[in-house]
Design a protein around this nucleic acid. Sequence first.
DNA 1: CGCACACTTGAAGTGCCTCAATAAGTGTGG
DNA 2: CCACACTTATTGAGGCACTTCAAGTGTGCG
Lengths: 264, 264
Amino acid sequence: MHDTFGLVAEPAAAKADPRGAVALAGVALDHRHANSYLARPGDRMKHIFLLIDGWAARYRLLSDGRRQITALFLPGDLCDLAWRDGGKAVQHVIAITAIRALRIELGTFERQIECDPGARTIVDHEAHLLAEAQCEWLVSLGRRSAVERLAHLFCELVERIGAVNAGGVGRCEMPLTQIDMADITGLTPVHVNRTLQQMRRSGLIELKSRQLKLRDFARIKKIAFFRSSADNPPLKNNLPEALKVFQTISGLAAVQTQGRLAHA
Amino acid sequence: MHDTFGLVAEPAAAKADPRGAVALAGVALDHRHANSYLARPGDRMKHIFLLIDGWAARYRLLSDGRRQITALFLPGDLCDLAWRDGGKAVQHVIAITAIRALRIELGTFERQIECDPGARTIVDHEAHLLAEAQCEWLVSLGRRSAVERLAHLFCELVERIGAVNAGGVGRCEMPLTQIDMADITGLTPVHVNRTLQQMRRSGLIELKSRQLKLRDFARIKKIAFFRSSADNPPLKNNLPEALKVFQTISGLAAVQTQGRLAHA
DNA sequence: CGCACACTTGAAGTGCCTCAATAAGTGTGG
DNA sequence: CCACACTTATTGAGGCACTTCAAGTGTGCG
């Protein structure tokens, strides 16, 4: 199932670059393989990404090898707003899956924010969502048990993907390996493994071949002390709106976004 | 030792309110006692604070009593930028010490950002500093040991206060109780106590009667895997600049800021 | 088919927690 | 200035959640 978002300003003016991407006015469609770096510490970033398909992660690496993932970027997220300040990457950002993204020059991006109040609102809101999510991660790492941390992570993912159906069952793609989950939740891969098994045994989740299913969303939320967007400002970003804003200035052909499991 | 920052636009126009505060154009000087709430979850916030003196903390409280502090606000910090989005507080914010702050109406604040590029820069930068600090907290909670967590917290505080002298010795006020430190570092108060003793025994720190001294900043930095602002964009905010911006629009008399131990 | 990587399982260790009690500060009112 | 209440800091003993180390067992892919 596919949806089409965004209107095309000047599709005819769009120019294909050698790698098959389209570039105009500082905005282009970009493709990346899984495990490719979007940024490394010290890199001077000249652009910012609006993720369309695929997942990415930002992480800190200590000199002795310890890794902590500090943010997950999902479709609709801006990656990485931290690059705006000084244009220098401080952390690693890696593609977890293959990725399609709008690559927006920082200059173009700033100009758009300056001129278009709608863009400004979206960006401010995005930044706020990230900050809120990070606070919840702090709570997980500081005060939640292993089961609670994983439960909370899964709740967050399913809500951000927008994949909780009316029956209270949530599903989503789960491209994260157990090592990734460990580096998000501050646990060891071994303990993540045992905790997942415990969660499966107790009928909380199903997880195999990169597919996650939350069997009773309400129950998992309670276990995780999860603040649902039902009672709060929504956790979810707004990909269609963001695409509209930045496609309009790019003259880019309308981008097809993959249908989400949300609709299944 | 006292410094005076900021110029006065219209001191004569400033009007004293019943509590001794001065109000004009949506900006006023505000005083709060230690342990008073600056916000509670659900509160509709009509203003934002620019901290001048004193410390504040933002925290999440789980329904079973577990507490995690998610941010510390020090002099020069804006408290709390999260209130901009929707004007609703999601977390508790409490004064750790007595506080003096510029209370800025949200409307005035937004208008200023809109008109004054300098204000916009300061605010964006402040938000960025907070995000960076939060990432480091994530690393602490997820991947650092108890000693490393406390060492990192102390490094951060001393740098933010701006109190590392040329000799490599850092000092600062330490109004946090061991309970507070526990709720920042995700430990129990008992374990914080034992860890602090260990750090004292090994000659890393001195800490008594609310005064912290880092005896060898370079060594503590290494232990904490601390990213110093020497190699990175500075951790420190810019109180004088911020005061100038917001005092200018307020017609408020120049505010005296307490001399910091940095100068001692 | 075989290599690489993710996942799984077991056994043993430890860093931090829990419970519990005492001591030392700190502020308050008489 | 002391007596009282309350919070903060300290210390001890025992337990558990999570880690570490070390083998395996799938499983996808060229």
